[in-house]
Write a protein that binds this DNA or RNA. Structure first.
Length: 175
DNA sequence: GCCAACGTTGGC
DNA sequence: GCCAACGTTGGC
């Protein structure tokens, strides 16, 4: 089988490369950023089990991340600008739906509710100082407001934050 | 307050 | 469809 195909001329036939937004697959873990003077972890906790729509996202990648979320997915709650630390864990309690804070139908949001605070907040400096977290979006895509988190990153940050993982697995929902 | 990073916009 | 200008984010 040495015969190679005559290389279908990397020219542009009909279906050349389309940016093909790669489907985002939920690992079950995410990270939500918020400026605490606008909407803080304490404010989310105050909303209780009903949670709160994560409105205001006007970035396509962040929006697509929310669209990929499933009920029961877990997320870190990160305080940007002030605090610069991961302070809590929240849970997706409503799937992506239109963002009521705009008439533009292209923006969606999920609802999240507080699950528990980190016994020890994990700072951005902590994250940056940990080689295991070098590829975390918080480091590599600083400006992305809704980020995916791998299972490994989740476990490491939880370890650093003294989080008891008991009963904290994301629910295995069917898609 | 500064400025780097980066997403978006708009002219061509 | 490219790319420079522009605006925003967010750490420092």
């Amino acid at each position: 089988m040495t015969a190679k195909k005559p290389a279908p001329a990397p020219s542009k036939t009909s279906a050349t490369k389309r940016p093909a937004p790669k489907p985002i697959v939920s690992t079950g873990y995410w990270l939500f950023k918020s400026e605490p003077d606008v909407f803080s972890w304490e404010m989310l906790q105050a909303k209780g089990a009903a949670g709160e729509p994560w409105t205001g996202v006007r970035n396509y990648l962040a929006r697509n991340n929310m669209r990929a979320m499933r009920l029961g997915d877990l997320g870190f709650f990160y305080h940007s600008n002030i605090g610069l630390e991961i302070v809590g864990i929240c849970e997706v309690c409503a799937l992506s739906h239109p963002d009521a804070t705009t008439d533009d139908p292209k923006w969606d949001c999920v609802d999240v509710r507080a699950v528990r605070a980190l016994p020890k907040p994990v700072t951005l400096a902590d994250v940056k100082a940990n080689p295991k977290l070098a590829k975390m979006s918080l480091v590599t895509s600083m400006r992305l407001s809704v980020q995916p988190v791998t299972a490994e990153e989740w476990a490491e940050v939880c370890r650093m934050g003294h989080v008891d993982l008991k009963g904290l697995a994301p629910k295995k929902n069917k898609r």
